[in-house]
Amino acid sequence: MRELLRVEGLVTRFYTDEGVVKAVDGSWFALEADEALGVVGESGSGKTVTALSIMRLIENPGRIESGRILFRGEDLLEKPEREMRRIRGKEISMVFQDSLSSLNPTLTIGAQIARVLKYHTRLTRRARWQRAVKLLEAVGIPEPAKRVSHYPHQLSGGMRQRALIAMAISCNPKLLILDEPTTALDVTIEAQIFGLIGELKDEFRMGVFLITHDLSVVASFCQQVIIMYAGKIVEEADVQELYGNPLHPYTLGLLRSIPPLEEEAERLESIPGEVPDLINLPPGCNFSPRCALTDERCWHEEPELAEVSPGHRVACHRVAVPVGVGEIHG
C-alpha cells in the first residue's frame, strides 16, 4: 500500500470577535491509497475543519496556522491557489452533507457535473454532457438521460446525494472526502449510498476520508478510525482494534452510547457534560471535565498522542503506555 495523504501537526484557528477558536489543534494522521479512514466525533470536534483544511477551503476569519498536508508526497499548504484549483475536484474531491443546499438551485444536475469536467478534462461540450449522463448512471440514478436535465429540487434527497457523488467522482479523484454524506437521508437510503461509495472506491481505487458521528457506519465501511474531541485526535486505530480494545475514555463513552441490538437496554448510556467551548479550553486534557477517570495530572498536563501498540495511538494519561513505545512525534 502506498501512502496517499499525511497530515502533520495541522493547526487551524478561527479569529472571531469572541476570541480564537482552536478548531483543529495539532492533528497527525496518514491515509493509505484505497483505504477508508473514518473520522468520528461530536459536532465541533474539528472533523469538517480538518477536511476543509486538506482542501485549503478555510475561509476568513479562519487560518491554517501550521503543519504540513502531504498529498502524494507534496505539501498542499505550499501550493499556489491556482495549483490548488487544479487539484480540487480532480485529485481531491468532497461530498457535503446537505445535498439540497450543496447544489446550485439554478443550474441543472447535468450542467453542474459538466462544469466540473470542463475545468479538469479536455472533453468537448457534447462529450461532457454524455459523460454526465454516464456518471448519473454509474451512481444508480434511474433514467439518467432524463434526470441530467433536471434541477436539484426535482430530485429526491437520495438522488441528489447520488448526483453530488457523481459530480465528486467525475474526474476520478485519488482522494474522496465525505462529510456526513447520509445525515439527511433515511436508513435504507444510507445503506444504499454506502454500498455505492464502497463499489466506487474499489472501482476507482480511491482513498476515502469519511466524516461521521455514526460509529456503526465506520465499523462496516472503514479500515482505520480516528476519534476526535475538541479539535484534537484522542485515539486512532484500525477498526478491529478500536472496537475490540478501545482505550480512551471518550471512545468508550461513544461505544457505550450505541444502543445494543441483542439485550434490551434499560437506559442508553451517555457521556455526561458537553463539548467544551473551543475558545476557552480547559487546562490539561480537554476531556477531563467529562471524564470519570481523571487524576491530578489530567487537570494540568495535556496528554500527548502516544502509540500503545503498533498502529494504535491514544492521548490519555490514564492509559498505561508500554515501556519502550515512545511518542510518534515531538
Binding site: 477551503l57 480540487r88 475536484g89 457535503f96 446550485n104 462544469r115 466540473v116 475545468y119
Partner: peptide, 29 residues
C-alpha cells in the same frame, strides 16, 4: 455564504465562473 458556492470551490471551479453562475445568478432572484 451558500453551501453550493463551497461545493463549486471544492470542485476546482474558477472564481469568475463561481461569481457568475453561482453567486450572481442566485443573487439576481
Amino acid at each position: 455564504s451558500q453551501d453550493f458556492v463551497r461545493t463549486a470551490r471544492a470542485m476546482g471551479i474558477a472564481p469568475g465562473d463561481i461569481v457568475r453562475r453561482d453567486i450572481v445568478k442566485n443573487a439576481l432572484i
